[in-house]
């Protein structure tokens, strides 16, 4: 068969996505749901970090990932991609940002383009799970710091220095005896 594999025609989304979409009951029906999600995706592209309810953040994340992946794969000279960008970004100055800033920023990335952090539960609260959805490589201060690991170069060097110190001390002890 000389047919292209269909799953390779669409860029793969790099985050886990539910098998079934969330319905988000809306007085305007499915169209209202999409309007709501478009608003969230636009906000994310504009501000690069937004705090949302978990359900909405997780749902919007997949659409944002897909949009960025398409922009990276096809560029701005591909009609379906441009239509997609026009649909999902309600503020049109962000269409430029998608192709000229984000697609360039994530060109060589091997992981997802967005990150979802769990926001703290404030007591007493409504206990709706809140999340912080952000684009990677944003200019804001990082939310999570990398935990120190013994594989880090300065930790390896410190460990070696410590061992050296112990050896030196032992030798001195032997001499004095």
């Amino acid at each position: 068969m000389n047919q292209a594999e269909i799953r390779k025609l669409i860029p793969a989304v790099r985050v886990a996505i539910n098998a079934k979409h969330r319905k988000f009951s809306n007085p305007k029906g499915p169209e209202g749901r999409l309007t709501m999600l478009r608003k969230t995706v636009t906000e994310l592209v504009k501000l690069e970090r937004v705090e949302l309810n978990y359900q909405r953040g997780d749902e919007a994340r997949g659409y944002a990932e897909r949009l960025i992946a398409m922009a990276i794969k096809h560029g701005d000279r591909h009609i379906p991609t441009m239509e997609m960008a026009n649909y999902w970004l309600t503020e049109k100055q962000l269409v430029h940002k998608l192709f000229k800033v984000l697609a360039v920023r994530y060109k060589d990335h091997t992981e997802s383009y967005t990150k979802l952090h769990k926001a703290p539960n404030i007591y007493p609260g409504f206990y709706r799970e809140r999340v912080v959805l952000e684009l990677k490589g944003n200019p804001f201060p990082p939310l999570e710091k990398k935990n120190s690991s013994h594989n880090w170069i300065h930790n390896i060097l410190l460990e070696e220095a410590h061992q050296d110190y112990i050896r030196k001390k032992l030798k001195e002890g032997e001499r004095s005896n």
């Binding site: 501000l47 100055q93 962000l94 269409v95 940002k97 000229k100 800033v101 200019p139 201060p141």
Partner: peptide
Amino acid sequence: NKKITQAMQEAMVTMQGLNPVEYE
């Protein structure tokens, strides 16, 4: 973090305005 992020976002959005966003 949220406080400083919000201040930064506000400054960023005012700088970009309604012009096409073409730079980091």
